[in-house]
């Protein structure tokens, strides 16, 4: 039972040491706007078919959505801009920080590195889907209890990463927690408290509390 492998058609990109992870990315889907050419080159503009609306069906947090999206649109952009699910955060939009982490068929996934069209036919869970109404999940409660955040912007991604980790490895050792969480940057540097929150959630779940 490894929590590091790239499995499934969409290959979970988490549970890989972030530095090692470098080698697994070759392209950046949502590159920053870089301008500088003296003359516009036709090829520089997005190719027409990348902007042609394409009908898709997304299953998010137990609901079914029919949408028409541009093929170049990322999952995070569709979740946030079209479905209003702004809990998933864009920290970099190019697979570096994990703030956009969601679960795809139960595995952690950078939603900024996933095109919305790719996410069809998969079960997507976002931070908004973890709680039961106003009642927070065990992982969310543990983050509050251990103060596993500061500014909170990385937090939805951290919580999703923790949830994904615990689903694959319900009893992670501290080193497994560090490795499992290493795809999620926290510039506030709350890692010490994040580790405690993950461990607390694991033990709550072990003792049969919640979920």
């Amino acid at each position: 039972m490894s929590d590091r492998g790239n499995k499934g058609p969409c290959g979970p990109q988490k549970h890989v040491n972030r530095r090692g992870f470098l080698t697994t990315i070759s392209t950046s889907a949502a590159a920053a706007v870089v301008v500088g050419a003296a003359t516009p080159v036709a090829a520089e503009a997005a190719p027409r078919d990348a902007t042609e609306p394409t009908p898709i069906v997304l299953y998010v947090n137990g609901r079914k959505y029919r949408l028409a999206v541009e093929p170049r649109e990322t999952l995070i952009s569709v979740l946030r801009e079209r479905l209003g699910l702004t809990g998933s955060k864009p920290g970099c939009e190019r697979g570096e920080c994990g703030a956009c982490t969601v679960l795809l068929d139960g595995s952690t996934r950078y939603s900024c590195m996933t095109l919305a069209v790719e996410a069809q036919d998969h079960i997507i869970t976002t931070i908004e889907g973890l709680a039961n109404g106003e009642e927070l999940s065990d992982v969310q409660q543990a983050f509050i209890h251990e103060d596993g955040y500061q500014c909170g912007f990385c937090t939805p991604g951290q919580v999703m990463a923790a949830e994904g980790l615990l689903r694959k490895n319900p009893k992670p050792s501290i080193d497994e927690v560090r490795l499992g969480m290493s795809g999620n940057l926290c510039r506030c540097g709350a890692y010490g408290h994040i580790f405690k929150a993950v461990q607390q959630a694991a033990s709550t779940r072990q003792s049969g509390g919640a979920k």
Partner: peptide
């Protein structure tokens, strides 16, 4: 005391609205 944050629910629930989230 070790008082948990009064806005913790928003921060872990994804309901906190940051500037980035405003529409």
């Amino acid at each position: 005391a070790a008082v948990p944050r009064i806005d913790g629910h928003d921060r872990v629930g994804g309901t906190a609205i940051y500037t980035r989230d405003i529409a």
